[in-house]
Each structure stands twice: as C-alpha cells, then as structure tokens.
C-alpha cells in the first residue's frame, strides 16, 4: 500500500519558519511509522531529523505527534493509523529541528521531584526486603520510560511550562508509594505547590498518550489524595 506522509520540517539554520513536506512511500500494513521515517531518511531526504534509539518501545526517544496524537513512532503500525499521516514534534517544548525538541525543560521538571530512592541515613546491615504487596503498590509507575508523551499531551503544560507535568508526578509516585523510601514528605511538599499537582485538571490526555499504558491520571490523583489526607493508602 502507499502511505502519504506530511511531516513537520524546521531547520533553524536555513528556514525562517517551519513548514510541512509531503512524501509518499510504499509500506506494509504491519510496518511501523518509524520504518517509514527511516525509509524517507535513507532514500528520499537525508536531512530529515528525528530521535530514535532502541526502536522497540523501550528507550522512549521517538515520541512524536502522529495524526494529532502523541505516540512512539516505533510502536505505531501503519494499519492502526491509516495511509494518510501527519507527523509533527511533540508540543510544549522548543523545536530544535524537524521532529526533535529540546527535552531539557522536561528533564528539569523530572529532576525536581527527587526521582530516585532515598534510603535511611544509617547504612542497612542487611538487604531491605519488601513484600510482594508493597512492591505491587507502585508497580504501574515503574514502567515509565520518560518519553515525554504524557507531559507534552497535557494542555496545562502547553499553557504553562512551569507545571512539573504528569511524567514528573508519575516518577514521584513511584517513590512516594515505595514502603522503603524516606523522602516521601519532601516529594509531597514539592508537588503541593501551585505548579505541582494542582495544575492537573484530570482531562486524561496523559493516560491516552502513554505508550506504556500507565494509568497516569490515576497516579496523579493518588498523589493529590496523599497530600490531602496525609496518608499513604
């Protein structure tokens, strides 16, 4: 089958403003959108710029807007999105070139929520065991690959880049609900802020966008509840 792609293009060194280029490529229904981009880059226009690394939905490099929805190009099959595609960079972050955006603001928000395990100050003398039930509590949010699809699908983030965004809250959730972690209150204090959880208005774009099917809005809601009740359920 033939697939028609309209791709966002912007080269800051040569273009005054962004524009769209059109390409038509032969594809199988089971080809991924990333395969089409690779074909265009290899055979039609070598200047096309996009990020990709593992190409198997694990590294989170190739998040982009495909027909208006944030997706990983390496996980979306042509048969699922049709033969007419519009491919654009994710929204809310500055475009550096074509489909590549500056992820620094995203990672700054991520770093701001203490996204790592904080153990007890005393060096443990033996392994810190955790029950399967306690581990299960935050299992969903361990799946985040930091692709940015959720944060850049959020209108609150588009409107105001100061909002930490769903990805940062998901990664805070992963440690807030870890029974062994010692920095729970510090994280909740960071998120109990004007640009913390309160900019989330539960529109569920993030949950729809997540390529790992994390229940992002639910995780944000659980953090809100932990702040409101001063309890971890």
């Amino acid at each position: 089958m033939q697939v028609k792609l309209t791709i966002f293009r912007y080269d800051p060194e040569n273009d005054k403003k962004p524009h769209f280029d059109k390409f038509t490529v032969e594809a199988e229904p089971t080809d991924r959108v990333l395969d089409l981009l690779e074909y265009i880059k290899d055979y039609k226009d070598g200047t096309l710029a996009y990020r990709r690394s593992c190409a198997h939905g694990v590294c989170g490099s190739d998040a982009m807007r495909i027909n208006g929805v944030n997706r990983l190009a390496c996980k979306v099959l042509v048969q699922d999105v049709g033969t007419t595609l519009k491919v654009e960079p994710i929204l809310g972050l500055p475009v550096q070139r074509d489909l590549i955006v500056d992820m620094e603001p995203f990672f700054d928000h991520y770093k701001s929520v203490i996204p790592y395990f904080v153990g007890s100050e005393e060096m443990p003398q033996k392994e810190q065991l955790q029950s399967p039930e306690d581990r299960e509590r935050f299992d969903d949010t361990t799946k985040c690959i930091l692709c940015g699809a959720c944060t850049t699908s959020c209108p609150s983030f588009w409107a105001n880049g100061n909002y930490v965004g769903p990805a940062a809250i998901v990664n805070a959730h992963r440690f807030i609900f870890d029974s062994r972690d010692q920095a729970v209150v510090e994280r909740l204090k960071i998120l109990n802020d004007q640009f913390g959880v309160y900019r989330c208005h539960t529109i569920f774009n993030c949950t729809d966008a997540c390529p790992r099917e994390i229940q992002v809005t639910q995780a944000v809601g659980e953090v809100k509840k932990a702040i409101a009740t001063a309890r971890l359920d």
């Binding site: 039930e133 306690d134 509590r137 609900f177 029974s179 729970v184 209150v185 909740l188 204090k189 998120l191 109990n192 802020d193 004007q194 913390g196 309160y198 932990a226 702040i227 409101a228 001063a230 309890r231 971890l232 359920d233």
Partner: peptide, 16 residues
C-alpha cells in the same frame, strides 16, 4: 500496602 500516616506536607492557597 497498609495505610500509613505521614506528616502533612503543608498548607497553602492552592491546597486550601
């Protein structure tokens, strides 16, 4: 995970 009480993270306009 059992319900665990934690110190309140603080009062502010947004929270209230």
């Amino acid at each position: 995970m059992q319900t665990k009480k934690i110190p309140h993270p603080g009062w502010n306009l947004e929270y209230m």
